[in-house]
Design a protein around this nucleic acid. Structure first.
Lengths: 239, 239
DNA sequence: GCAATAGTGTCTTTGAGACATTATGGC
DNA sequence: GCCATAATGTCTCAAAGACACTATTGC
């Protein structure tokens, strides 16, 4: 028997205020996957390690992504190369101040950009995290799953390399994210099919052995992803 | 030159109140992909077609998903089989009442469940939508992209079939979502590999021709997805 | 029997991985 | 010359698609 629909439920009545925040899972590869954490400087949970984040400011943020970018700039000094919305976490218990929402984002930064900015950041390998404030451990876990999953079928890992890189370097990044060695020939075939890299003429890396060709992204829009219809690695980890 | 980090920005100061809502993109296949819309019964935009949704209630919702389920029950009478968070949309302009957030969800319902509930719902093919309120057209577009994308590598389409279905029916659902015919042999090989279906002993569909075996999901947890590490269709549509 | 759909067997093609070979640097 | 790494050529194997064939119903 279909449940009767109440005539006119007061769904749009104004509700109790909800705390609206944004958090950023900032990741780098150095040489393993690491996440940036900050000790909280005020209550609640002062001193506890937490993701960079804070309240959305209705008067200055154009959307959640802009709020995340502002947070990142303010708390880490980085102007973010790759920034993607992850998911929204919410509920009455996650923050002692009341029913709260956090629009979580993932940001990627090449390890060689870390010198600048990054003042009080504490980097922790994602596979050995200390206790985190609120539900931030869960958020980090989901972010890592997302990044690993997308590494299977997209160019996402290039955003963990600098602007210029060699194919062996890029393959090492994919392997670190996917957690297993990749076939060199297949990897190069796939990168060529994706058609997202261009060689930097004349440029090669030095070293004690045969120098490798340097490459850069063809499409210079920051944060752009190229997808492939075949998979590089194994196990799909996250939806 | 790295931008200096301001000493102690007032990031956690209480901010202007933000409207927190949830919207649901409820989809069915009948025979094309259709979305459920409701004419708004109050200002703003009274009369305009919109997604079922409304404010989060801090006093009764355990999290955004619960809020979406409540909304769905109240506005459509359906207790949802498949419900997944999509993304969060927010900004100062999307709702005339002020800076607002909508945690958008995707819900799938088999066409044969539509008889019950579904009182004032208006179903529209997603490829020929009328004008929608707020930014709901964009939300629907993203939901459809997500559903089509997941159809490539997961069992998501089974949630658009009823509890019992034949393999030709299921293949037709995949084909409708992916927009192209699939190879019968490969499709069956893949379904067998995924190991998510079990035949219903003795049961077969009638009809003028050879009857087909009926199947059902092995894992009866509603909303559970099985993933595959190979792709069924072509073009990856959404990240 | 015939028509129409369900289900399966098999061959061909394609793409991925393993391996070997060549190339280019420093010493 | 030797070693180490980069880059590419080639072979093998496995999976996907095309196609044909069998199976089962109603008429």
């Amino acid at each position: 028997m279909p449940p009767p629909i109440p005539p006119s439920p007061p769904l749009e009545a104004a509700a109790a205020p909800i705390l609206c925040t944004v958090d950023v899972v900032l990741l780098t590869l150095n040489p393993q996957l690491q996440v940036a954490l900050l000790p909280r400087d005020r209550a609640p949970l002062a001193g506890a390690l937490a993701l960079p984040g804070g309240f959305i400011h209705a008067d200055e943020d154009a959307d959640p992504r802009a709020a995340a970018a502002r947070m990142l700039r303010a708390k880490t000094g980085l102007d973010c190369p790759y920034l993607e919305q992850l998911a929204t976490f919410g509920g009455p218990e996650r923050d002692p101040r009341g029913w709260s929402i956090s629009v979580a984002h993932v940001a990627l930064v090449p390890a060689d950009l870390l010198a600048r900015g990054a003042a009080g950041l504490r980097w922790h390998p994602v596979d050995a995290l200390p206790a985190l404030a609120f539900d931030h451990a869960q958020i980090v876990a989901q972010a890592v799953a997302r990044v690993r999953s997308k590494s299977q079928y997209s160019s996402l890992p290039v955003h963990l390399c600098g602007e210029r890189f060699t194919l062996p370097q890029l393959q090492a990044v994919y392997e670190a994210l996917l957690g297993e060695p990749l076939n060199k020939v297949s990897f190069r075939r796939r990168m060529e099919e994706m058609d997202l890299l261009e060689p930097i003429e004349g440029e090669r890396t030095g070293g004690a052995h045969r120098p490798a060709q340097l490459w850069r992204l063809k499409d210079r829009r920051p944060g752009a992803l190229t997808l492939t219809d075949r998979l590089l690695g194994p196990a799909v980890l996250a939806p």
